[in-house]
Amino acid sequence: MPEMDRSTAEGFIAALPHARALGLRVEAIGQGRATLSMGWDARLVGDPRTGVIHGGAVSALMDTCGGTAVYSLPEAEGTATIDLRIDYMRPATPGQRITATADCYHITRAVVFVRAVATDEDSSRPVATATGAFTIDRKGEP
């Protein structure tokens, strides 16, 4: 089965109203791997004194990134998050774009285990990491 291409991933993201509201952008897509980014936006700030983006917006980026990674699997037709845990390592630098990459590191018949890392423009120090379990609806199955 062909690998998911970027325009399919962009279509997937564009179909999610909340991903549009966050201004999410597809940076890279492969089988079971997705990189999405979210630009700094004054509406997403959690601490008005520093301009740091709210952890909830980072969670939304991580969740979307994990779901997109699952959806990029050739056999996937749909997915939903079962659980997601986020560790916040440091505040993202205000004004900088946050980029998250999610990997499907283990795939079973019904569940995909995903890991994700988010950084700002300093890609050597993670802003947050996430681990989650996602459902997978397989093509041709009810």
Partner: peptide, 9 residues
């Protein structure tokens, strides 16, 4: 459905 990220946030 509500976005999972919205629910988390």
């Amino acid at each position: 459905a509500l976005h999972g990220g919205v629910t988390a946030a």
